[in-house]
Nucleic acid binder design. Structure first.
Length: 729
DNA sequence: CCCATTCTGGTTTTT
DNA sequence: CCAGAATGGG
């Protein structure tokens, strides 16, 4: 049978496995996608399973599309009925059909993180809490983790009744939930939780889906949280044909509630579960894999597993030490240019970093050197102001209860409806217990409004009403154009006529083409579907499909991807592992798993870099190489610093800086500063002896960065600093 | 009500 | 350093 050709014994066993719970522990690069696609194809083709009886959960929509395509290739039959997508998109699909059974309108809005923050902010204000003490971000992270663990507000408040802070966090949580409901909105967590609630409260609906989904698959199972696990348990309650695939060593979403114990407990929770281990790696060279294995070994209490490969040994992993982030980016660019000459293509390269902020230097350098690149995440298209504004219009039109969206755009573009006016309307709505939109329908009843305000509100209302009517009859693109024109949004930007407004117009045009794409791919798609679709896209999904470009992305976003050549940058203590993890053993282990994920993305070549100086918040920091570098076995590593060191007479910091000082800025400084140079020692009145590590021109003065022996790095101006230069080598 | 300016404080990772 | 919030003048 062609479906098992070329598979190894373990893989074949997984593909051909019969009924009942199955746990596939799949190491990095062990061909789990292959196993999943082949198993699904096998069920359909050889076992006669109807595609509509299969639900497959993937981590991103992109992964879902790719898998679906691969299955399509393996079969001749039609697989349109196969449900494949993320937890969130599957839940939206279920809720759009049936959420009315638990008291929501089926036109509910989906709130993203920014919406959540706005809502929490409102709650803090409404409850008269001190906003310095109650920070919306930290409250939101508590709420998030409570939702992940399915703890409701009342339970939490009772548990913390005697703690002022946490009790009030609970109160915010309660009000937040109330507001979501009033706006007929769900946040990301709710998509899962409300589906569970629906299943628990309505036996018919549960029964329907239990019968429908005879076979359920969950990929990246190590990163599911408690509620997702519960959802899987409910859906598979009838047939128990649940196949999960995961790797505990690649669990990197603990901060989002991911619970490794889901994978560890699987065999307990599902009786007679079979476990299959995939340990042969097909992705990386021996050198790369060995480095990964040695690093992850340092995690305590993990289930020992040794990934092996038949692939060639390959080049040693290169570890490179650079002066600062600029040199780091230039080193990477140099390597890429060099490898491009050797026949690699831009799309073969990925730059992996721990935090999004690190992408900037690479962007600058790549732009200057004309290396084609694309960035995953970071400044996101859908997070741009103009896109969020348009989406808010659409949300309101689709779900008039959505006060949050209404408030966002009621005065964008300016229509003379300011805060004071809106507050009066809102007060009226609150008192009547209805939405702002509804209140506007009773405009004449609202007290204390000036005629002017009333007129402005009236024309706003008329506009929204006409949009609502149009949305019923128009195609998506046509409708969208109507909205951006009739609102005056485009007009305002055109009048502004700045570079910035031009970019915004471009973005709006881009958004229109997204809508056209959606229309083509989903001929029956509604406005609701379109909105749900764009709000559930992951960063990876959203990244533009540039033909041939270097990929810049966080290690988190790189999960599940692979590249011929990988650069892991910023391998420094405090950055990777991140500072917050340094004194917490559990978080440190998660960082180490993250490092493991990063290393195992590489197929042929792996470069790891760290800088000695890194600018954070505009401050220059001294950094040390990451502890993970020490965990990598020397025999698989080559460090060009080792080679260079021999030709320099290295006496510490001064010499280290000397040999990298070919960079342009230092060269220039050498000419201009006969008296002062990087590496010179100085004596400061208060801070004592230090070494100059950087000199910058600043308004005719010189700004010095000095590494003091006692107090570390300081930045000061030459003209006013109480220092003397210590001469004489 | 609108705009410009000052200030604050914030970076982990994201469906 | 930078973006968004808060503040105050027009």
């Amino acid at each position: 049978m062609e479906l098992i050709n070329g598979l190894n014994d373990r893989q074949r066993e997984a593909v051909l496995y019969g009924e009942g719970p199955l746990l596939i522990l799949a190491g990095a690069g062990s061909g789990k996608t292959r196993v999943l696609t082949h198993r699904i194809a096998y069920l359909i083709k050889e076992r006669g399973v109807f595609p509509g009886n299969i639900l497959a959960i993937t981590f991103t929509n992109k992964a879902a599309n790719e898998m679906k395509e691969r299955i399509d290739h393996l079969l001749d039959g039609n697989i349109d009925e196969l449900w494949m997508g993320t937890f969130h998109s599957a839940c939206v699909r279920i809720l759009r059909r049936n959420i009315d059974r638990i008291g929501y309108d089926r036109a509910f809005s989906i709130y993203d993180r920014d919406d959540q923050i706005t809502l929490v902010k409102e709650c803090i204000k409404d409850l008269n809490l001190n906003k310095d003490m109650f920070k919306e971000r930290s409250i939101l992270s508590v709420i998030g983790s409570l939702k992940d663990r399915m703890v409701d507000p009342d339970t939490y408040i009772n548990e913390h009744y005697n703690e002022y802070y946490y009790r009030n966090v609970g109160e915010v949580y309660a009000l937040y939930e109330k507001k979501l409901k009033a706006n007929n909105a769900l946040d990301f967590d709710d998509l899962i939780l409300k589906t569970i609630e629906l299943f628990n409260k309505d036996g018919d609906v549960l029964d329907y889906y239990q019968r429908k989904f005879k076979y359920v698959f969950v990929d990246e199972f190590q990163d599911t949280n408690k509620s997702q696990y519960e959802l899987v348990r409910l859906i598979t309650g009838r047939y128990k044909n649940i196949c999960v695939v995961g790797d505990p060593d690649q669990s990197i979403y603990k901060f989002r509630g991911a619970d490794i114990s889901n994978i560890l407990n699987f065999e307990k929770d599902f009786e007679d579960a079979t476990t299959i281990l995939l340990e042969q790696n097909y992705r990386s060279t021996k050198n790369i894999l060995e480095v990964a294995n040695q690093v992850i070994k340092n995690n305590y209490g993990r289930k020992e597993k040794d990934l092996w490969t038949d692939n060639e040994k390959g080049d040693r992993v290169v570890v490179e030490s650079l002066l600062d982030e600029r040199e780091e980016a230039n080193f990477v660019a140099n390597k890429i240019e060099q490898l491009l000459v050797e026949g690699y293509k831009p799309k073969d390269f990925a730059i992996l970093y721990r935090t999004n902020a690190q992408s900037r230097t690479f962007e600058e350098v790549f732009m200057r050197r004309q290396i084609p690149y694309k960035i995953v995440g970071g400044l996101r298209f859908y997070d741009r102001k103009e896109i969020k504004d348009i989406v808010a219009y659409l949300n309101l039109i689709q779900n008039p209860a959505d006060d949050l969206s209404l408030k966002r755009i009621v005065n964008v573009p300016k229509r003379g409806i300011g805060n004071a006016t809106l507050e009066k309307v809102e007060a009226y709505a609150n008192q009547k217990g209805e939405s702002i939109y509804k209140a506007l329908l009773e405009l004449d009843e609202i007290p204390n409004l000036s005629t002017r305000a009333k007129n402005n509100l009236k024309s706003f209302l008329d506009m929204i009403n006409s949009f609502m009517a149009m949305s019923e009859v128009m195609g998506l693109r046509e409708f969208l154009e109507e909205v951006i024109n009739k609102t005056g949004y485009v007009k305002e930007l055109e009048q502004e006529d700045s570079i910035e407004s031009q970019t915004r117009l471009d973005n709006i045009r881009e958004f229109l083409s997204v809508a056209v794409d959606f229309e083509v791919n989903n001929p029956n798609g509604t406005l609701e579907d379109f909105l749900a679709n764009i709000s559930l896209l992951s960063d990876v999904d959203k990244t533009e499909d540039v033909d041939n470009a270097v990929t810049l992305l966080t290690v988190h976003s790189a999960k599940g991807l692979e590249f011929p050549v990988v650069f892991i940058v910023g391998m420094e203590e405090g950055l990777f592992p991140i500072s917050r993890a340094l004194d917490d053993e559990e978080e440190l282990e998660e960082e180490r798993r993250l490092c493991y994920v990063a290393i195992t993305r590489a197929e042929r070549l792996l470069f790891i870099t760290h800088a000695k100086l890194r600018t954070i918040y505009g401050n220059i920091n001294y950094t040390l190489p990451s502890r993970f570098l020490d965990e990598m076995p020397k025999e698989y590593i080559k460090s060009s610093e080792d080679e260079k060191k021999e030709s320099f007479n290295n006496k510490g910091l001064i010499q280290v800086i000397d040999y990298t000082s070919e960079r342009e800025s230092s060269k220039a400084l050498r000419v201009n500063n006969q008296d002062l140079d990087i590496g010179d020692k100085v004596n400061h009145k208060k801070w004592g002896v230090g070494t100059i590590v950087q000199i910058k021109e600043r308004d005719g003065d010189k700004e010095l960065v000095i590494a003091f022996d006692k107090v570390g790095l300081k930045r000061l101006l030459l003209s006013i600093a109480p220092i003397e230069i210590l001469k004489g080598e």
